[in-house]
Design a protein around this nucleic acid. Sequence first.
DNA 1: GTTAGCACTCCAACACATCGAGTGCTAACA
DNA 2: TGTTAGCACTCGATGTGTTGGAGTGCTAAC
Lengths: 344, 344
Amino acid sequence: MQAELDDRKKKILHAVIRNYLETGEPVGSRTISKYTDLNLSSATIRNEMSDLEELGYIVQPHTSAGRIPTDRAYRMYVDNMMQEKDKEIEELKGPLLQTEDKMDKVLKNVAKVLATNTNYATVVSAPQIRSNRLKFLQLSKVDENQILAVIVVEGNVIRNEMIHVDEVLSDETMLKLNILLNTHLTGRTLEEINLGMITALKEQAGIHGDIIGEVMDAVAQAIKGEEDLEIYTSGANNIFKYPELSDNQKASELINTFEEKKALAKLATDKLADEGNTGIQVYIGEEAPVQAMKDCSVVTATYELGEGMRGSIAIIGPKRMDYDKVVGSLRTMMNELERVYKKD
Amino acid sequence: MQAELDDRKKKILHAVIRNYLETGEPVGSRTISKYTDLNLSSATIRNEMSDLEELGYIVQPHTSAGRIPTDRAYRMYVDNMMQEKDKEIEELKGPLLQTEDKMDKVLKNVAKVLATNTNYATVVSAPQIRSNRLKFLQLSKVDENQILAVIVVEGNVIRNEMIHVDEVLSDETMLKLNILLNTHLTGRTLEEINLGMITALKEQAGIHGDIIGEVMDAVAQAIKGEEDLEIYTSGANNIFKYPELSDNQKASELINTFEEKKALAKLATDKLADEGNTGIQVYIGEEAPVQAMKDCSVVTATYELGEGMRGSIAIIGPKRMDYDKVVGSLRTMMNELERVYKKD
DNA sequence: GTTAGCACTCCAACACATCGAGTGCTAACA
DNA sequence: TGTTAGCACTCGATGTGTTGGAGTGCTAAC
């Protein structure tokens, strides 16, 4: 368990992993004997591999088959042996740069580019706004019986809410309500807008107090930004490229997870929770926070667009994914995203 | 080809189809001989089936297998033989009624209910608004340099647009602009807001004419409602329940189509094109407007929520789908939708 | 510590036999 | 003339060897 691997074992393990990542086939001693520059016979390799198996880094699917890496080996690989590929990643930049579009379009594009570039499935969650303040609030009479509440929170997230009223409100009343609400609420966070404040507002609004209630609900929704956590997926069909994931049972589950998106949201927000983590996280097999992905590996990255707006990107593929490339791609993509948007 | 089927042939064909819909297995003469109330021996059935094969209604996957219906048979079935199932459909109503939520939530739910109830994949497109009028328009200064344009069109579709301005606008200017825009634009359709009108407006706005331009772009977007044709899918993984669709090649293509959604939009809007069609359309195999679905059948329905707002629902499954049930489910769902929303 | 050699294991691929469902055809029957 | 029983035939699905090759572990020699 705790045993450190000597240098030769490391090299062999590395070779096994690399080879398996590429081929997806169990790799045998003879292959390794050529693949490395160690100049060892297959017999020697066999001995070493036997040790590695005892240490839990590799296993045989059956007697007389080659070895395949365990989750543990992948972990070790990701932690210590990986070296990101830089050249392939450069190609990414091109297509993304040209966009000065709306956020959602860009993010959809990010997902797409990553998916096609890596050949894995990709999930991008739009930035979540945390601890933000109300920036602007306005009620407008759209109709005899309908009031439109427009709510803008810091970071320019806009929310609309139609409120149905039974009585017809005069323009004057509307103006009053607007002033009342704006003077009291603008610049406040959700925590600052407490219950006492709301009842006070309702009192001041007099007979129109019930409207205040509805508006406040909408405000709370907008600030929390829950509910409509936008998630963009792309390349779900990539999973069919990997036999180990594309048997009907697993494929169905995965596709379902992709469609439901709730589980994915979890995957995205889990990472946001631990504050310090601006980096890239790799979840191998069971480590993944979503049950359906126990046969997959998930690589997540968190990007930050200033003002505490943070979103995340996840790439999901088979355990034998090309970690180097994925991590590299994610890193450049994150930088790119932050570069493009941070100037706002 | 043109030959009419006599009554007995019809009965037999019907039996073959029903049986195949249920089992998915080729159906043989002996089975039919019991399944029908015709009291004929299998030999007689064989003769008839041989005729039916010559007429192009059924085929054998291989010699010494039973027969399966051709597209032609399905067509005939859908056109003439189908009788919608009413009882199973009633169960649908329950879960949908309770919603008085936002449109998008309801539609997502519609997709979900249909998908789980029918066991096929479901696509719901949000209502498209056609030839509608501007109902309300408001510019608000959110920030020193940012103006929020809120646009409401008939049918209460709301669109927000942030407009960046270099100069700081006074409250008075804002008020003027708002009055200017509203007096000229409210109640107009896109066609009525012609180029001459826009230049006139720009002139009246004086130095702030460029803002008008941006606002008008946003208005045009909002009215056309293109761009963001919302599409909700559900039950994509249902395709794995049907072996004829779940081999890797086909499944991958279908999933991809579902994710891309563009093709689906086509599927949805194609039907909207022909005005008179308020009913339900069935596309069998190659008839489907999307290439990836040539091995599927697609049943589409158009719902209308008044004021020319029309959307569509599509259910996608194997050719041997339970047409009766699907058509029935769609019909009740449509009615339900229209019932719930038309009162607005 | 390394390597060659060898016996052993086990999967994958292939050939082969079997069986059962279903057909088409013919002849007999009502 | 339409219906039916009977029978030979076809062909996929299933099961059973058989074989070959890849890979291992072990032992003995270097």
